[in-house]
Amino acid sequence: MRLLYVIIGCVAILWGCSQRNREAQREVQDPHQHIDREKLIEANRKYLKAETNAIERYVTERQWDYRVHKNGVYYRILTRSGNNEKAKEGDVVYFTCEMELLNGKRIYEDEPALRTLRIDREDAEIGLHEMLKLFSPGDSVQMVLPSFLAFGLAGDLDEVGMRQPVVYSIKIEKIAKQ
């Protein structure tokens, strides 16, 4: 008989614990439930406007004769080769590249480094893929990729911080057609 009371007591305790756990789970709410979507959208718009203003200040202070691509990249052509060969998806572009932040801090290399990029098939900055399609071997260009086309929200977790535009100085060396 005593054993029966012990078993009934254990079952009652377990049942009570499971009820409290269910109540606690009901109290825990979705953390995203309180985020106001419109406020986030507005905050991102404000940040994008501030970033665009910073890029415009950068190119204006340096007196760039610049163009703005439809994707938001500010660029200027330093030299045109007269060659009409352009890279397409799958082609490999060989180019020298210097990179810096808007504050003038050089990143990755002190001297121009030869890079290769298989267009639209390799992991690299989205804006770089898009812009390299516009130029031919022998062309030199400077461009400012907005953060969303460079290293994004998080940066590269190394030399490029969160939401930082990146300035590229590029010379297209050759294009290997595929």
Rank of each mutant, 00 (worst) to 15 (best):
L114P: 07
V73Q: 07
G90I: 03
R80Q: 11
E98D: 13
T79P: 04
V92G: 07
S81A: 05
R115C: 14
I77P: 08
L78W: 07
V93Q: 03
A87T: 08
Y108S: 01
S81C: 08
E111R: 13
D120I: 05
T116I: 06
Y108K: 00
C97F: 09
D110M: 12
D110T: 09
T116D: 05
D110E: 14
E98K: 08
N103T: 01
L78R: 06
I77Y: 02
E100P: 05
K86I: 03
L102C: 06
E111V: 12
L114K: 01
K86T: 05
N83G: 10
V93A: 04
R76V: 04
R115F: 15
G104K: 02
I77G: 09
Y75S: 02
E85S: 13
K88H: 15
R106P: 11
V92Y: 06
M99K: 12
E98C: 12
N103I: 00
R106H: 12
G82D: 03
L101K: 13
L102H: 06
R121C: 09
N103H: 05
E85K: 11
Y74D: 07
T116K: 11
T116A: 01
T79F: 10
K105D: 08
K105C: 03
K86H: 14
T116V: 07
L102A: 02
Y75F: 10
G104L: 01
R115N: 15
K88W: 10
T79H: 14
K105S: 14
I107D: 00
N103C: 01
E109W: 15
N84L: 11
G82L: 08
R76P: 04
T116Q: 13
I107H: 00
G82R: 02
E109R: 13
N84W: 10
V93F: 03
G82Y: 06
G82A: 07
D91P: 04
E85M: 12
R80D: 08
C97G: 13
P112D: 03
K88A: 08
K86R: 14
T79S: 14
E111H: 13
N83K: 11
R80A: 13
N83R: 13
K105L: 06
Y108F: 15
C97K: 07
L117N: 00
K88V: 12
R115G: 09
C97R: 14
E100K: 09
I77V: 12
R80M: 10
L102N: 00
